[in-house]
Design a protein around this nucleic acid. Structure first.
Lengths: 194, 194
DNA sequence: GTCGAAACGGACCACCAGTCCGAATCATCG
DNA sequence: CGATGATTCGGACTGGTGGTCCGTTTCGAC
């Protein structure tokens, strides 16, 4: 059983951390001490509840990702269309999410020990992509990783000032190329005149 | 003029840092103190010579990248082929480089303040890719970033135990799709540069 | 109301990047 | 050469961090 105060404190801490990450200008000017202070809670409480810094970040990230997914479902319930459309939609949503949660997403990436790959959201997106890319056979896995890499949080950050349409168009092209159905081989010997 | 001891010490420090990064199991168990000790030099010397930790990492990274490029040129002097071939070759080399310099590359990525994008090697590769993708018009820039994201060091790390052929094949497909000519796809004015 | 288990708080620790300044070393010029 | 002024060196020192520890408080089952 979960003691009531523990559960309550976890929520308080997550909320406090969220506020601090939203206000931060750099991923690591959110210290654990600061979170504890903002939450009005002892530092031990945080570490007992989340293990370590990476754990806290992951928990907050997952919470927000879940909310984002829920919102997406609400707004665009049964998304229909070609696989390429679905891939494009997924990547675009990820891009937007990371734009809205810049410091949090950057922190997650930097939290060491392969953390960008060790969270449920990533696995989730990866799985979905692999399905949508199934026609690539064994390479679906690598291609899924590669597509997700195109929406890595620090690339989002790096291209922060590009207009949305430019990003959307770029992703569209990328996706059409990679996920689009091509009747024939992956680019027949793909050569061109020199 | 550059004082002789300074130049000499910079080399000593770079060599020491290189040794430590090669031996490390985690990007940040190479501390500045450790580098100073390994180099037999005071800590101040390092910071005077490289500014900060990120500066040291970048310097070492650039040094090794330059050596790698030189070696590449030696082994495969005048690389010919379609643009897609050139892109594939470039990405594959980057992948190999990051595999050979795992901890160093990871450290660079994690060195804060957009460091993965703030180094000459990246700009170099980006420029080359943009040229090779020029037929994509305005999207060449985004696509170049996206392709480079597919060889991000922590993806290399994450897929470390995949056989080389699998990676090469995946990259090949990705590149053929993105850089190759596809008659039936939205590839405006789709003809090659040069 | 009692009591054992679980969670709390915040002082405490080890460590790290980066600074600082007296001591040592360099290049220059007489 | 040997003297001199500018540079660089070394490593003790600082501020701040993630993470631990344990005496104290709170919870909830009975």
């Amino acid at each position: 059983m979960v003691r009531a105060d523990k559960a309550r404190n976890q929520e308080i801490v997550l909320a406090a951390a969220g506020r601090l990450f939203d206000a931060a200008r750099d991923p690591d000017d959110v210290s654990m001490d600061a979170v504890a202070a903002e939450a009005g809670v002892g530092k031990g409480t945080i570490f007992r509840g989340f293990g370590d810094r990476a754990g806290l970040i992951r928990a907050l990230y997952e919470q927000r990702a879940a909310a984002f997914v829920a919102q997406t479902h609400r707004e665009a319930p049964a998304h229909q269309g070609s696989p390429a459309d679905a891939v494009h939609f997924l990547l675009l949503r990820l891009w937007q999410f990371k734009r809205q949660n810049r410091m949090l997403a950057l922190s997650l990436d930097r939290a060491g020990q392969g953390s960008p790959y060790r969270n449920d959201s990533y696995d989730d997106a990866l799985g979905r992509l692999k399905d949508l890319l199934a026609h690539h056979g064994e390479q679906a896995d690598f291609l899924a990783h590669a597509l997700l890499a195109a929406v890595r949080s620090d690339l989002v950050e790096h291209l922060r000032d590009r207009p949305d349409e430019e990003i959307a168009a770029g992703l569209r092209t990328l996706v059409d190329r990679v996920a689009g159905r091509h009747p024939n081989l992956p680019c027949p010997a793909g050569n061109d005149p020199q």
